[in-house]
Structure formats: structure tokens, C-alpha cells
Amino acid sequence: MKPVSFRYFAPRTVDQALELLATHGGEGKILAGGQSLVPAMNFRLARPASLIDINRIDSLDYVREDGGELRIGALARHARFEGPVAGGALGAFLPRVARHIGHLPIRTRGTFCGSIAHADPASEWCLLAATLDAGFLVVSRRGRRNVRPNEYFVGALTTILEPDELLTEIRLPLLGEDWRTGFAEFSRRAGDFALAMCAAFLRFEDDRIVEARIGLGGATDRPSRIAAAEALLTGSEGAPDIFREAGNIAAETIDPLEDIHASAEYRRDLVRAMVARALDQASAR
């Protein structure tokens, strides 16, 4: 289980990285945390001819609040989100999600943006980005573009990123204190990939839900929001029964993945439970 040979580049600046990507991106890969890429290389499932290691680009290592958004640079590692990085409902929410990502040594190396670029269906950060309609800042020597989740995620491990492009930043809305949040995930063992998970965001006014965002991950080829369930909740007081109903709607809406760990039927069962639990959690806060 040793990888095939590759050429190694360690650019110091984004410009250098983009130049390298323009030349080598086609048969190469960007190496950030490497916690998904390197196992695939060790199995020789991934065989990039070049690796462009962005770990030396210090300017990409940041998490900061700016204009009501949390801006996350391409080198911000998962472990950073286990502690406080921002205020507001989002700031309180991030550590609760971060601890579900792999294990401590994985979180030490793996990056937020790397997860988004890899687009594993079971990625917690992909779910979060999709649910909160994050902004994805993508740059190349051809220019820069700001992409939204609904066009960014194409399928399992597939995004609109072109070979010469680098995802440099994710922007998440900070969410005011009137948002309440919930997160529920099911995996077989601690740290395993989610078989299903739900991120729920509810904004209450006068004890009524005036805005709802319900995102699902792990169960389908890409993270998605469940519009019908969000519509059901909006205007309600958010009682357990309606949360169950939202779970049922979500389960019926999706086209689940199937693998050795979970059939489509079982993933629907899990979605039902995870949606209801995430909503219970959100309403309890």
C-alpha cells in the first residue's frame, strides 16, 4: 500500500499554486490535509502524477469574521472548529459538528475547504455549506468566481471545480442569536462516515418558526436541503409531531445511496430519525 510516484510541488503563494495548477492540474491533485487523498493514493485508487501541496501557503490559513460572514481559508483545519472561532448561533454550532469529523489526528490535519473540494457525500462541512447556502470562492489564473452550493455540488466526489482551480475560501453566514440549531448524525462507530445526518436551523419569532433550513447529508450523493420540510415547519410552533412529519417528508423526498453499510430503505429510516432529532435539538435550545 505505497502510492505510485508523483511530482511534488510546494508553492508558497496562491499565485504560484495557480501557475502550477494551470500546468499540472489536469493529471495532478491539490494536497491540503490529505486525510482523504492520501489513503486513496496508498490504495493506488488515486494516482495523481503531480501533487501541489498548498500547506506552505500561509496566507490561506485563516478563519475570520467579516461583514456578517465567517470566512474560512483553505488551510483552516477541522480541529480549529472544535474551539470557538466565531460568535452567534453559527459559532456555537460549529464545535458540535466538528467533533463528528473523523478522529482527533484526522482533524489535526484535515481542512474545512479540503472536505468541500473532496465533496464526500458524508462530509459534515459539505452538509453545513449546503444548508447555509455558503459562498465558495474559486480562483484560477483565468479569474475568480463565487459559486453557490446548488451549482457547486454535482454528485458524489464531484463538483464544478476545474482542474486548474483552487477553492480558496468558504463564506458562511454567522446567523443571529434568533437562530436555533440542531445536528444529528448516525454512524456505525465513533468517527465513521455518516450514514445519515441532518443539520437544522430554525429562526423563531414570537415562538413561531419564521425561517427553517433543513439539510441532509450522508444519505444521498450530495448534501441537500429539504424544501418541503422547511415549508412545513415555517409558520408552525415546532412541536415534536411536526418534526416527525418533517422527517417523514425528508425520507420520502430523497433518492438514497446504497452501500454495504446501509440500504436505501435503511437510509430513509435513518433520515427520518436524524431529521426529527436535529429538530428536537434545535427547538430545545
Partner: peptide, 22 residues
């Protein structure tokens, strides 16, 4: 492949899987 952790070392005092780092 980064699951068992037998290769865990500290890099700048942080635990990492040394099989997943070049």
C-alpha cells in the same frame, strides 16, 4: 489508510497519522 492509528506521532505537538503525511 489512516484508520488504526498505530503510526500516530506528534508533529509540532499535534497528534497526526504518519501514514497519511509525506
Amino acid at each position: 489508510h489512516g484508520v488504526c492509528g498505530a503510526c500516530t506521532v506528534l508533529i509540532d505537538d499535534q497528534p497526526v497519522r504518519s501514514c497519511l503525511m509525506f
